[in-house]
Every structure is written in structure tokens, then in C-alpha cells.
Design a protein around this nucleic acid. Structure first.
Length: 564
RNA sequence: UGGGAGAUCGUUCAACGGUAGGACAGCAGACUCUGACUCUGCUUAUCGGGGUUCGAAUCCCUGUCUCCCAGCCA
């Protein structure tokens, strides 16, 4: 059986209300501000893997472009070679594509523009708006001033244009050691906005760049780079997160000073999720310190992690559409994400019976050695997904949690004297139990009602509960990986990640049992294990050993009742 | 105690001077061969104080609280 190639279900933007950025675009189109054009971009730095926070930005940028008949570029903001790697570039390309977006032939790199940026820097020098500064990093910091005091001007601020041109050219040529000089913009050391206090445009940095190799010894800073890249690409709306609000005056200063196309920077709030780390720096730490198996560990909030966990692009897009866009600094509750993956998988995932924590059930009055095939629906609401045969025999496994020797109040499942239905099979009644030396129940003995074959009794008798099962003889043994949040609930925010980790974020059930129909299912096939949760086949699966990840549990009303 | 940006149900997004609405969560019920799904119902909000107005979440003033900014990171 296979659910390969789950049908594409369209994201539902029409269910999402408008947002302030959409309103700005509508207004701009009305006034003809950008000639009715909409051109956005998603500009990650290739210094880590994309996470679900990036998904919000991706959906926003590509989504807006699509909605307004515009374009969206993918551009790598690769101006700091010391942190960037090709591995990250590749993963980002893969992840954006997986999410379902297409930049066509518009894949760019800030490094594509290094020469142009250099020429523009010369222009600013010639315009008297940039100068080479010999101050050390520490001196620059000391002279920057404070929130209440203005900074002091660099003694090198008034060098002649000729000297600046010469020095800058020699910076590029490699005549000076790393960190010894910078090119700075000549703006206003007394500005209340620190970004305007003669910001650094270029630093000397001998580091191999993942694309330009050792061609450059000087690298442009983000602020000097971003607006110009947007400008070159004809970006109309440059959408970024809130922390860049203070940078907007500088963004504008560069494109205006250069006299080039001026895109419009708009800031929105970055995604925060309860109980979830969404900082590249901390995620890198988790990987480096080995707290997770890698960037694609299914507990990671990276796109590669949640993909491996079994989240679908459709669910992610629906989630991103549902959370809205604003400037409020909020935190989305994780259950909203879970709602969207359940909604998607409920509609599409094939049903299957699997027992994660097995306990043996023996049907005393069932003939020894007999096997029969029972018919089961692959999806309760989708007959077109077909039926399958599930083998039944005398010895079965059921979920340990579906049997209690002493039932708590409102417990509908199996206990001595109680009759339940085995899904698609028979009514069974518990008659006795066998225990080991420790008093643990090892076997539950039942009798079945042959007249109830298929799951209904001709006498109209009702049972309170239907439970899932597998035939011991026919079941496949598999490894179920049960995930919980990587972080402890209410973990205090701190850099000491170790103390915040949930010790049960991964529980491996090596002896889980599943019906034989799943044999050979391809990696990342999604299933609903009935009454347990949504699972997908993990990459670690082999022909000999099936490994499944629990994507998310089914909602569990019983768990709530039991708690009370 | 400088500058920038915010504040609407528990959470989040809407309402753009004219009935405060949706989603998630929660609660109660119906249905059910998944205690799932689905369906029904319910609870709960305009940060405080002033003003303008026939009418204010929306405009004005004022106070409070939260977030961001002093990398040669992005």
C-alpha cells in the first residue's frame, strides 16, 4: 500500500484576512507608485538551515507576488563569508522548493553584485559621502556614543577624496591587514539612530567565500548591500522583520545617495512559537553539541526537520496563511500548527492499524492455526481510496493502554468482563488475564463472538468501544519514534540550552507492531495509525526494518477525561 | 533617562468614524466500527485617564506597559 504523491490541495489564501502589507500594495497599485508592479524577494543568509519562521516570510513574499501577478526572487545575502557555506545554500534551495514556491530563473546572490557595489562605493567616496577610517573596531565602538550622548567624529572623517579613493583601492588590493581599516559612510555622528552614526560599509576580511573564493579581501556590510541588491533587481516591496525598522533610514540613504531605484522597505513581526526555539544561533548549538541528530532531526523546527517529522508543505502554507501578518510582537500557540497538520493529514492520509505498545490478546475460542482476511477501509470518508485485507488470527496484539485490569471511571475499553469491538473484526470479551512474577499482565484472554464478524452483531448489541489490533503472527515489527517538544514546557529563556531540554522528547518503541499491508511503503509516506496518531515512514527505514515517526498525536479526549 | 515600533477574547488575526467578528485553545452536548473526523451550543476582549463627535477599537491629548537599537553579524 502506498500513499505516494498525496494530492496537492491548494492553500487557502482566501480564508486569510487582509493584512497591512497587502493593504500597502493595494494602495500602491492604486496610486501607481511602482507602476503597478509587485516584485518581492526572499533573502536568506546561507548560514544555517531554514526554519518555520522563515516559512512565514517565504509564504508572505511569494504569496504576495503571486496574488498580485508579480514576481518573487530568491536571493542569498552572502556578504559574510566567515559564516556561510554551500551546504546551507543547497538546503535552502531545496526547502523553498519543497514548500512549493518557484523563483523561475531569478536565483541571485548578493555576491553577484560585489563589483557593482564596489563601484558604487567609489561613487559615494567621490560624492564626499564615504571615507576610509583607520580606527580599530574597539575605537569605533568607543566613539559611537550612547543613547543619550552623540558619538564623536573619526579623525579620518575629513580625508580628501583622492586619499580615500587611493586607500579604498589599496584595501581591495590587500595592502592592509584584516580589521585595520574600514570604509564608512559620512552621515551624522550625532544621530539618535545609531545606524546613521557613520556606519561601516566595507571591512577587510580574509576569508574564503563559498562562491567568490579569494577574489575579495573586503566585504560589504548588510546595510550597504541590501537596498542596492533590491534596487538592482527592481524589487518594489522589500519585506523584512521588525528589527530592521531602525535600518530603514539607512537603507533609504544609500539608494537615494546613489540615485538608483528605491524599493520600499516594510517590516513585519517575526514568528514566535510557544515552546519552540527559532534562533539560528541556538539551533546551530543544538546540532553542534549533539543534542539532536542533525539539522533534520524530526524534533527540530527547521523545515528539513519538520518535513522529516511528517509535516506537509500544504499544512505549513495553511498555517502561515492563518497566522496573519502584523507588527505586534506575539507568540503563536504551537497547537495551531498541530491543528493544520491534522487537518491536512486527516483529509489525505491512509488509515492503518498499528500497535505502538503491544500487549498480547489470546482469543480462547478461536480455532488454532486459523487465519482469515478481514476487509478494512483505507479512509473512512473516501471510498475512492479503496479497501484492504487485514489478517486475523487467534493471537493478537492490542495497545497496552486499551486494557485495564481495574478500569477507571468512564473507561470504555477492554477490562475483565467487558465486551469491545476489534475494528473491522469481531466483538471480544475479556475472560481472564495471565501475569508474570512481578504481577504485570502478560496475556489477556478473551472469547469472541463469531456472529459479529466484520464488526457488527446481528442481534444489534452495542459496545462502548472499538479498539485497534494486529495479528501477532502476521504483524510486522517496526520502530516507532514518538516525539514530544524538544524543550521543556515553561523552560526559562537562557543560553544554557541543556537545562531546557525535555528528556522525553524522543521515545523509541522498538517493538511496535503494524499490519502487513504497509510493507514496502516508501520513506515519507503518511499514515494515520488509527486511534494513535499520524505517522510517516522515516528515512532510516530499510527493507528489513521499518521506522516510523509520530508526526502528531490524534486529539485525545480520553486523556482529558482520565486527567480529571 | 536617546531613538524606533507596538498594545482588541487565554492566543492570534480582523473590523480603516456606524451592530467588536473569525481561527486556534477551552467548556458542554450530538454523532460515531477511530474517545478521531464532523456537527451544535457556550464562555471570554478594545491597556488606563481625559477630550473631539449624534456616534470612537478607530481621531486628538496624556499616562502605563511590551519589543527593538550602541557588530568591522544579518
Amino acid at each position: 500500500m502506498s500513499t505516494e504523491g498525496l494530492n496537492e490541495t491548494p492553500a487557502t489564501p482566501e480564508t486569510a484576512p487582509s493584512n497591512f502589507i497587502r493593504d500597502i500594495i493595494i494602495q500602491d497599485n492604486k496610486t501607481g507608485k511602482h507602476g503597478g508592479r509587485v516584485h518581492t524577494r526572499f533573502p536568506p543568509e546561507p548560514n544555517g538551515y531554514l526554519h518555520i519562521g522563515h516559512a512565514k516570510s517565504i509564504c508572505l513574499n511569494f504569496g504576495l507576488a503571486k496574488e498580485f501577478g508579480g514576481k518573487c526572487n530568491l536571493r542569498f545575502d552572502d556578504t559574510n563569508p566567515s559564516k556561510e557555506e554551500t551546504e546551507y545554500v543547497d538546503s535552502i534551495i531545496n526547502d523553498v522548493r519543497w514548500l512549493g514556491f518557484d523563483w523561475e530563473d531569478r536565483l541571485f546572490y548578493a555576491s553577484d553584485y560585489f563589483e557593482q557595489l564596489y563601484q558604487w562605493a567609489i561613487q559615494l567616496i567621490k560624492q564626499g559621502q564615504a571615507y576610509v577610517c583607520d580606527l580599530t573596531a574597539e575605537q569605533v565602538r568607543e566613539t559611537r556614543g550612547t543613547t543619550t550622548e552623540p558619538g564623536t567624529e573619526s579623525p579620518y572623517r575629513n580625508r580628501s577624496i583622492e586619499e580615500n579613493l587611493d586607500l579604498f583601492q589599496r584595501m581591495r588590493a590587500g595592502e592592509f591587514p584584516d580589521g585595520s581599516r574600514t570604509l564608512r559612510s559620512k552621515i551624522d555622528m550625532a544621530s539618535p539612530n545609531f545606524n546613521m552614526r557613520d556606519p561601516v560599509m566595507y571591512r577587510i576580511l580574509r576569508a574564503e567565500h563559498h562562491r567568490t573564493g579569494n577574489d575579495w579581501l573586503i566585504y560589504p556590510m548588510y546595510d550597504y548591500t541590501h537596498g542596492e541588491c533590491d534596487s538592482i533587481e527592481g524589487i518594489t516591496h522589500s519585506i523584512c522583520t521588525l528589527e530592521f525598522e531602525d535600518h530603514r533610514p539607512l537603507y533609504d540613504w544609500y539608494v537615494e545617495s546613489l540615485g538608483i531605484h528605491r524599493p520600499q522597505q516594510i517590516e513585519f513581526d517575526r514568528l514566535n512559537l510557544t515552546n519552540t526555539m527559532l534562533s539560528k544561533r541556538k539551533l546551530l548549538l543544538l546540532v553542534q553539541k549533539g543534542y539532536v541528530s542533525g539539522w533534520d532531526d524530526p524534533r527540530m523546527p527547521t523545515l528539513s526537520g519538520i518535513r522529516r517529522r511528517g509535516y506537509t508543505p500544504e499544512a505549513l502554507r495553511a498555517f502561515c496563511g492563518s497566522i496573519g501578518v502584523s507588527k505586534t510582537n506575539g507568540t503563536i500557540e504551537f497547537p495551531l500548527l498541530e491543528h493544520h497538520i491534522r487537518e491536512d493529514l486527516n483529509a489525505r492520509a491512509a488509515r492503518v492499524m498499528a500497535v505502538v505498545d503491544p500487549i498480547k490478546v489470546i482469543i480462547d475460542n478461536y480455532p488454532d492455526g486459523q487465519t482469515e482476511e478481514l476487509e478494512a477501509a483505507n479512509h473512512p470518508d473516501k471510498p475512492e481510496m479503496g479497501m484492504r485485507q487485514v489478517p486475523f488470527s487467534k493471537v493478537l496484539y492490542i495497545e497496552r493502554d486499551d486494557f485495564r485490569e481495574v478500569p477507571p471511571p468512564k473507561y470504555y475499553r477492554l477490562f475483565p468482563g467487558q465486551e469491545v469491538r476489534l475494528r473491522y473484526a469481531y466483538f471480544i470479551k475479556c475472560v481472564s488475564v495471565v501475569k508474570d512474577a512481578n504481577g504485570e499482565v502478560t496475556e489477556v484472554h478473551c472469547t469472541y463472538d463469531p456472529a459479529s464478524r466484520g464488526g457488527n452483531s446481528p442481534d444489534g448489541r452495542k459496545v462502548k468501544s472499538t479498539i485497534h489490533w494486529v495479528s501477532a503472527e502476521h504483524a510486522l515489527t517496526f520502530e516507532a519514534r514518538l516525539y514530544e517538544s524538544l524543550l521543556l514546557e515553561d523552560a526559562p529563556q537562557s543560553d544554557d540550552i541543556a537545562t531546557q531540554l525535555n528528556p522525553t522528547s524522543l521515545v523509541v518503541k522498538a517493538n511496535a507492531k503494524i499490519e502487513p499491508s504497509v510493507k514496502g511503503a516508501a520513506p515519507n509516506t503518511h499514515f494515520q495509525f488509527e486511534r494513535v496518531g499520524y505517522f510517516n515512514v522515516d528515512l532510516d527505514s530499510t527493507d528489513e526494518k521499518l521506522v516510523c515517526n509520530r508526526t502528531v498525536q490524534l486529539k485525545d479526549t480520553w486523556a482529558k477525561i482520565a486527567k480529571k
